[in-house]
Write a protein that binds this DNA or RNA. Sequence first.
DNA 1: ACGCGCTTTGCAAGCGCTTGCGTTAATTGT
DNA 2: ACAATTAACGCAAGCGCTTGCAAAGCGCGT
Lengths: 355, 355
Amino acid sequence: MTVSVESVAEMAGVSVSTVSRALRSVPGVSAATRKRVQEAADELGYSASPAASRLATGRTMTVGIVVPILAKWFFGKVIGEATHTLREGGFDVLLFELATPGQRERFFGGAHLHGRTDGVIIMALQPTKDELESLTSQGQAVALLGAEAQGIGSVSVDNVGAGRAAVRHLLNLGHERIAFIGIRDEEGSNLGGVPPLQRLVGYREALSEVGLPRDSKLEQLDENSVAGGAAAMSRLLVAEQVPTAAFVASDEMAFGVLKVLRKAGLDVPRDFSVLGFDNHELCDVVDLTTMDHEVAEQGQDAARILLDILNGRPPATLVFPARLVVRETTAPPRALRSTARIPDSPHSAGRSGTP
Amino acid sequence: MTVSVESVAEMAGVSVSTVSRALRSVPGVSAATRKRVQEAADELGYSASPAASRLATGRTMTVGIVVPILAKWFFGKVIGEATHTLREGGFDVLLFELATPGQRERFFGGAHLHGRTDGVIIMALQPTKDELESLTSQGQAVALLGAEAQGIGSVSVDNVGAGRAAVRHLLNLGHERIAFIGIRDEEGSNLGGVPPLQRLVGYREALSEVGLPRDSKLEQLDENSVAGGAAAMSRLLVAEQVPTAAFVASDEMAFGVLKVLRKAGLDVPRDFSVLGFDNHELCDVVDLTTMDHEVAEQGQDAARILLDILNGRPPATLVFPARLVVRETTAPPRALRSTARIPDSPHSAGRSGTP
DNA sequence: ACGCGCTTTGCAAGCGCTTGCGTTAATTGT
DNA sequence: ACAATTAACGCAAGCGCTTGCAAAGCGCGT
């Protein structure tokens, strides 16, 4: 039961310090004794008490992963990949869900991580300067996923570029009234609000590139969920002039959009095109065209960046591009369908002059 | 930075032992000094080093959560709820994903948890006797979710009953050729295979209750995913006599089933009824009729059971019932539709005599 | 006044590991 | 063959808490 270094030392006929060094591959132990110690340890089923090592070394060999919510496909995926990489690096992972502002405050407020973790991966939460400062001053290494900060390692997606690309695809199909359905950074949510807004920026850029006016009624924000998407779409349906397509900043919201459209008797994509974001596992089920960004890689890379930092290397910053995955929810708008198809070419002349 | 007990002791003008006792509400400290110590601690922003407490007490105040895979809605949900409850109980949570048999073996093989956690919640993995023995002999408290074992705390779903209920619903609608699409416990998966099989048992019971023969061609197992469901449904479509309905043991598989049916040009529920399992977040999007089982409660209760065990109370065993949630994917079979509707009444006479 | 029991506090010995430093043994150069 | 390196190992002092036990302070009855 209580097999400690001493038992191993005794069995191998050496001192505890030698056991400690041998088992951790610290230089200064001959190959022969190392082997002998290893065998003794194996036989006794010995493994060092983490608590004792931590106390002695000050390193916890544990990293924290912080997410705003667990019950989303994206986070499950990304955490799974990250934990795998971290575990390979010899680290345990401690999980923190910051679902409410209260939890967030408590987390960043006290020295909650102190002595628990060596570093932390913060996912989809844009920490404030103070929050970051609080972490680093506790000696935590920090890596961000889905956010960026000066001097902090991070992996994120080129949201502006992705938004622009998404909207360009719709433009290229011939759409001229394109809505944006985005994630509202609502009371009670913890997202720093940044990625959703960046996608909106990309949307606006794409429109202005071809000279289309911005219409704030076409920009609908709501909570990041099926219900939120549905609500946003419902609002669009009562506009004086209903758009013919929507770029939706998350697949889950897009699912809600599809549902409302179906209930409204509108055919997708004949009457309305929908373009989502994330390439959610279930896109395939509803044939949703979407913007894919390597979710698994992001998780792995975030972990790797943190491990690098913990090994004294400088914090890396990665930005992933997103790429269009065409499925069945996007098509040219009805008006154009009977005539010639608009080729998917650069937004040529003739449209930029739209009234 | 390195604010330890001593600094607090000094500031409060007491000994370290008094500080320790005061801060942990251990009896034997006067109210006055306790207050003084508390204030000193607050001012210094002191919190005890977990490593040191662990070493001294032997308790880690940490519990492990073990899942076969993170990137599934069900596990995200359940872990989220469980961690919340555990955190309220003062425990940190360490995450373990056992995606491959190799990982499983490594996890249960060595004393991987020893000194890291006080207890562990094992989710949707049926541990063998040996594996449980290995954990308890390491002094771990154990709670199971989605599995049961003699003398071990657990929360699970009445899968047999749920399967029976699901199939009865289809029978009551008038279906007579009902398929079962279930989760195969494949090489590389870690599920003990038990819940899926129990649902199959319920299916068989319901059929035999009304005297319907069992047809092994109607029982299709595949991996628990959209693709698996799609594959299973595809197999059913080439049967000599295609069924008119299917009870699918997971919503994700059911999504795949729906997709295949749609592609095949079959209308759901006019041509084919589909009944899923889990009440997945996205059921609402595709209007999938399903069996709901309080996922959030299961997570909370699993955590609570573990906390109880850690507090010396006897291990509780909870079995949740599942309940039918009717949406739009179930209806009477085509043959009956033009005539009178079959009321949703107990499987009355006239059908039990089917050839 | 004095002794007794109770509460409040401090002392010091761990908990099980790591690591700087000193010691011994083995190796090399001349 | 002997001094000087160098490699291998052991000693013991922590790391920052907890806790059994002894000491001190206090109120009370007699």
